[in-house]
Design a protein around this nucleic acid. Sequence first.
DNA 1: TTGTACGCGTTATCAC
DNA 2: GTGATAACGCGTACAA
Lengths: 337, 337
Amino acid sequence: MSKTARPVPPRAPTLEDVARSAGLSSMTVSRALNTPQLVRPKTVEKVLAAVKATGYIPNALAGGLASRRSKLIAVVVPQINNNMFVDTIQAISDELAVRGYHMLLCVAGYTQQTEAELVAALLSRRPDGIVLTGIHHSTDLKKVILNASVPVVEIWDLTPTPLDMLVGFSHEKVGQATAEYLLRKGYRRPGLLWTVDKRAMQRKAGLCEVLGRHGITDPLSVDVALPARFTSGREGLSQLLALGESDVIVCSSDTLAQGAIVEAQARGLRVPQDVAVIGFGDLDFAAGNNPAITTVSVDRQIIGQRAATLLMERIEGTRSGEEIVDIGFHFIERESA
Amino acid sequence: MSKTARPVPPRAPTLEDVARSAGLSSMTVSRALNTPQLVRPKTVEKVLAAVKATGYIPNALAGGLASRRSKLIAVVVPQINNNMFVDTIQAISDELAVRGYHMLLCVAGYTQQTEAELVAALLSRRPDGIVLTGIHHSTDLKKVILNASVPVVEIWDLTPTPLDMLVGFSHEKVGQATAEYLLRKGYRRPGLLWTVDKRAMQRKAGLCEVLGRHGITDPLSVDVALPARFTSGREGLSQLLALGESDVIVCSSDTLAQGAIVEAQARGLRVPQDVAVIGFGDLDFAAGNNPAITTVSVDRQIIGQRAATLLMERIEGTRSGEEIVDIGFHFIERESA
DNA sequence: TTGTACGCGTTATCAC
DNA sequence: GTGATAACGCGTACAA
């Protein structure tokens, strides 16, 4: 066999190639693939055979350009290695995959500046929808997004005035509910172990507001760096104990709570008898921990599912109904407080 | 102001619009944006001003179609809500963002079938590179990928015959190292708490091989479902104890190990005196746990970084050197075993 | 340094 | 039910 005997072009087969192979026009092939119900069944068969024969793989870049629909959803989160967001991301991804969409995932950290830059870059991909974490964005970002008139869902927070659509819950109310629980249980000297991100601060605000109304002001407080880690929980409790006595440690996440509990136990303190601990998130270890962690449960998957379906519906034009979804939360009393 | 006074078209501004606004050709605008060093500085300024004035956002769909470069990297992982992979994913994302690339993330679960389907769909996006988790893929997938002649990096595993490039480590050796440690420490009745994914099974094979050579065959063993959870660790240990006595529990992940330790402690067993526990992964809680977890450390971020840079280099044509990167691992002796 | 012509692979639209 | 044609918005190749 001579080398020149291989007339196959190195470029990927196109719709044209399939059409030629099937003895049809490229337009018919396109229809057979995208809207088979508009094509005679026998023709569809021929096309499918030709596709297999040629090894054709559609070019979504060209398709998106022509149709002005990229079937791409951009998702922006502050972090991935944060137990809170991964379940949401996975839920979005699962929901999209079913419908032929793909997920562009970006990690923005916790600054509005980088978020704005990332979204600007992301918009060049012409996503059909965008998922943004949180409701606090730079004015630049808001302008750019509204200008692009692309559907947006903000997640993991609540506001009466979202950019567009929203799926989340009230962090302030979580804080309030936590405070009310503490007070009901008779705790009077809370110590706070807290990360400093926006949403955690809202929970803290809600917590302190209710505490303040009951005469508990300026509770002992230790800030820890993001992301919340088990180790930070242990160290944080040490610092908190050095500041003074607490009868309950309120943590901004279960991860911190788990660390705090271990640190307490290592010091011979009984949880909750000597010091109680409360977390947030109901992560998978919370129920099984010893003692089981009293915490606030949030359905992280539902956030992703609803966000994805809201976008899908808006894109397909079948939206009707509310655009602000409050998924709420549950306070879960267990053993640690 | 009459309504007809707004001649602005609803469509997004294009390179043409910017060019008109700047009194230049669209090609010059394109160059000013992509290769400014080829354009007179004053012209670049004019272009930038016009871009700002028009609110132009590049269309990467059109750009990718024309240049045959999507600046997209597809990443396929079995799960996201798995502490092992998130750090790798985040590292990839970070590395890509710096260079103007974006990450398409897909969750494939643990079946080759869905992985193959996802990759096929992904290829229609014309990614410039693909990151695949693991080295076991369906023959279909391999054929499709080789045919597409797109750079691929397989991660989290090791083989002398990767599809293309590879960044990982030997799970078998991890298992062997673990076995050798056990034997050295004098443990003779190991119990296994194991997930059933491919990579975990390789570690198990390495472990059992060395154990077998020392006369320890058919160790007690309990399989747990994916993803590995704290709760599964607790339950798994219960089952294992029901099967018989063990002096050391070897777990396929730190998450399981943490659960097992808590379960042991809840039963009044001292770790490691009454029963030792070994994990895998060196997750962030391992060092701080009480007792600190003896485990195997793997640099999950490096995997992502190297995978991304390998792809970048191959794409930019600046590759030179090895294509199989063994990042190794470290056995970390702590308190739990 | 800047501009022109054309092609990238697909879909919208309208004709048959 | 199928085909022809013209976009879609940009970059490559080459000319000026």
